[in-house]
Design a protein around this nucleic acid. Structure first.
Lengths: 334, 334
DNA sequence: ATGAAAGCGCTAACAT
DNA sequence: ATGTTAGCGCTTTCAT
């Protein structure tokens, strides 16, 4: 079943069928109807490879997902799903690449014209893929910010501002000593951008408000919660505000505090940077800055589509943090 | 940079380059060397669309991932990653589809020849996609078993046997009253195959051994753990053995039992069906039947490759459960 | 062991 | 508004 079959069946030329499908030139209503009918009757589907060859567009995007330790998997899935869903709205499909394939994988799918454009997640401050992206003849969008991003397109939650907003919320409630429970150490060692930026924002805001502060990278294993809680209280006996940037640890940590005799939010206020869904599902719903995975995924695809169109897009898109107050924060005890 | 360029540069014909690349006919060592050199020097990459058109093979597999409620996301990601990794070993890429696209999505990627074959996850007992798969001209593999799978290729953990093995382990330790804490109710309502089969195996084995038993579908929200624990003890005061088939609930449930004054495994033995990684990471490492996501993903791709080769493959592949004893099970108190 | 050439099915100039 | 046709870059017969 090919386009010439459809053309014959509809009594038109192949190009007319092609144009009826693409809308790239005006077709009379009558012709269009006949073409559509022929397509339906014959169950015609254009051959993706032939299209890609003739048009130099595969209508496929590459999505590179991170697999490394310390990344919260459900967030990755949410990104992926929103990327796929949005891509489909623009008539594109999504090819899944793992980071294992590395730069060679990017080069492969780009150079073979298997994909038209690329989306990368888990960007590091000094990401080895950056030089490649700059020379690749295909547009790309990075979810996350490297140290220097000139000539590249990046989008992410403004993690620095997120760290600040959390501290400011706590400061506004009268808290004077705060701690950040961060991502697993390996995330910092890798210089993953978002983890670093939370620390920057957290520390800057704490200093600005004259709060005592400390930062604790932390394993995601929930078994670690008790130890972390104890350590925090040992290091900062005056501690009354905690910012958690570590999804799997959030609930166990709150449990651990309560088991140590600290009521949340009575004795200790807790804020988090995490998906709203998680913040809401916890026994004590947690005041949090949303990690809007779906929104970021959608906007990453939209940026890419505009780049494929030849439209200019901003190099950096930082999404402003949105803090939602829930039950885990309260004014400091007198 | 195309194949004719390489051919000219190497002083051979385009077909020779093609054959040197595919190995589909003998090439003299000397010629092969010259071709490889030309490819390297010119940085040549064959155009994926042109290949697909000429060979009627896209070298792309579709992977349909479930998004529905009650599915444990990290397990889905593990599948996806192992599918991608294995596919790459066979020189294939993976196109990511969401279940949202439904049957139309499958038809689209198959009929446009965007993919050569398909892998489906989260199969339901009466899956609406089954008839389509039977008529589709492309091979497919389902991860999971529908009610009737003639003519289709399925692979999964033998969940029925997994349920049995858990009960038998408990029975062997002298336990006489057991309960199954299952997947969220919506999973059963959807008639998702694996959840049902665990229940079958659990119940059959309990009956066979003359154990008192009960089954409790259960939300994944960890807040529900306490309620479930209390309900279990109310329903079955003699309860000493629990089988958990609900990843997110596993740890909270054990915590809840202990808070109710029941030591694990002193008073209550707990087994689970879950990834080994999860079972090991819990405070009380849990005796479990492994959910070998990576293995299943790998084998699904291997089945598909053999089908693409024209090799016959078994319609049903049930992976035997493997129970690992850990700290959460012990003989029943005298 | 290698070359020549005919497609694969579509798009997009270039007609009219 | 529609038709004609020359590719797109590769694979694979068919020759030799």
């Amino acid at each position: 079943m090919k386009i010439t079959d459809v053309a014959r069946h509809a009594g038109v030329s192949p190009s007319t069928v092609s144009y009826a499908l693409s809308g790239k030139r005006p077709i009379s209503d009558d012709t269009k109807r006949r073409v559509e009918e022929a397509i339906r009757e014959l169950g015609y589907r254009p051959h993706a490879g032939a299209r890609a060859l003739a048009s130099s567009k595969s209508n496929v995007l590459a999505l590179v997902v991170p697999l490394r330790a310390g990344i919260h998997i459900p967030v990755v899935m949410q990104f992926a799903v929103s990327v796929v869903t949005t891509a489909r709205r623009y008539d594109h499909d999504v090819l899944l690449l793992t980071q294992e394939e590395g730069e060679e994988g990017l080069r492969r799918v780009a150079d073979t014209a298997l994909v038209d454009a690329l989306i990368l997640m888990d960007v590091q401050l000094q990401d080895p893929r950056l030089p490649l992206l700059r020379v690749l003849e295909r547009p790309s969008v990075m979810i996350g910010f490297p140290a220097s991003s000139e000539g590249l397109t990046c989008i992410d939650l403004d993690f620095k501002a997120a760290g600040e907003v959390c501290v400011e919320h706590l400061a506004g409630l009268g808290h004077r000593a705060v701690a950040l429970v961060g991502s697993p150490p390996e995330v910092y060692v890798r210089q993953t951008a978002f983890a670093q930026r939370v620390v920057q924002g957290f520390t800057a805001a704490a200093d600005r408000h004259g709060l005592a502060s400390s930062v604790h990278p932390c394993e995601a294993a929930s078994g670690a919660a008790r130890k972390v809680a104890e350590q925090l209280l040992r290091d900062q006996p005056a501690l009354t505000g905690v910012v958690v940037h570590n999804e799997p640890l959030l609930e166990p940590l709150i449990d651990a505090f309560e088991q140590l005799g600290l009521r949340v939010p009575g004795d200790l206020s807790v804020t988090a940077i995490c998906p709203d869904e998680l913040a809401e599902s916890i026994r004590v719903p947690v005041t949090s800055v949303a990690l809007p995975s779906a929104d970021i995924g959608t906007r990453a695809v939209e940026l890419l589509m505009r780049k494929l169109d030849g439209t200019e897009v901003p190099e950096a898109t930082l999404l402003a943090p949105r803090l939602t107050e829930r039950a885990s924060t309260a004014p400091r005890n007198a």
